[in-house]
């Protein structure tokens, strides 16, 4: 196949565009000076300042609380929803409702919840964010688990029923273990989405202690400090490691049936 050399221009432009800001961020995080713009010398000064910053530490703890809480809700309810929709009630309308939180703009979800919590006279706080994140994460977990259910073999479940196991035993012993990889993938997705989520949290947190993305957002509005560079570098490292580990894990998972790959 012939391909024009000209095509390499946008190709490399894309990668430079995607990685230039990241490289600059990481380099500047090791800056010894006060400036976020000129590099004065290498040091770990800003990592030290970061470790001592209570706002950041509290934000991180709040973020983890929200992510953990919403992941538990979403994993349980999303899995049940997926099983129910695939096995018990086929309905286009219910499918659409289960997928809607994943499609609606986050801004609309955020203001909708603000209005709802207002109408219920609900005091906003971390738990209102947990409920909000749990809601959209439920849609993602249900969608992921659903992909494992459609096209899955139901003969094991039928065999279990024929051998006299009740529906509860069949679900716990047969269906659930079969779904485990999908449930784990869904839970990981829910956790990651919650960690990163800003808009919905912004509308539903009220005056409570903010989550980490909100802390960073309010720091940005008062100007740039190299401390954020250090934080960014750490977050980048964490998410890069998680993505690459996830990639490796799915590869190992796939290796079984097609070893010739």
């Amino acid at each position: 196949m012939r391909r024009s050399k000209l095509l390499y221009v946008p190709f490399w432009a894309t990668y430079v565009f995607l990685y230039l800001p990241i490289v600059v961020l990481v380099v500047m995080s090791f800056n010894s000076g006060e400036s976020a713009y000129s590099f004065e010398g290498a040091s770990l000064r800003w990592y030290g300042e970061l470790a001592g910053d209570e706002r950041i530490r509290d934000g991180l703890v709040n973020t983890l609380i929200v992510a953990a809480g919403s992941t538990v809700i979403a994993t349980v309810l999303g899995t049940m929803l997926a099983v129910g929709l695939a096995r018990h009630a086929r309905s286009k309308l219910l499918d659409a409702i289960a997928l809607m939180p994943a499609v609606l703009p986050d801004l609309v979800i955020g203001i909708g919840l603000l209005v709802l919590y207002g109408a219920l006279q609900f005091t906003l706080g971390l738990y209102s964010v947990v409920l909000a994140h749990g809601m959209f994460a439920t849609a993602f977990v249900a969608a992921v688990v659903r992909t494992r259910l459609t096209g899955a073999d139901t003969s094991l479940e039928e065999a279990s029923r024929d051998l006299g196991a009740g529906p509860v035993t069949t679900f716990l012993r047969i269906t659930l273990p079969q779904l485990a990889p999908g449930i784990i993938a869904g839970a990981l997705l829910a956790f990651t989405l919650s960690l990163d989520e800003f808009v919905i949290a912004f509308f539903t947190i009220g005056n409570d202690d903010p989550t980490l993305p909100i802390v960073i957002y309010s720091m940005l509005r008062f100007g740039v400090t190299p401390e954020i560079n250090a934080l960014a570098a750490i977050l980048l490292l964490v998410s890069f490691t998680a993505v690459i580990a996830g990639q490796r894990l799915t590869k190992i998972g796939e290796r079984g049936p097609r070893a010739q790959d």
């Binding site: 995607l18 990685y19 800001p21 961020l25 800003f198 940005l220 740039v224 977050l235 980048l236 993505v243």
Partner: peptide, 16 residues
Amino acid sequence: LPFWTNFIIRVYAWIM
């Protein structure tokens, strides 16, 4: 990869 890093951080990089 960049898509999986924090959204606010990605915006911040461009402010800088």
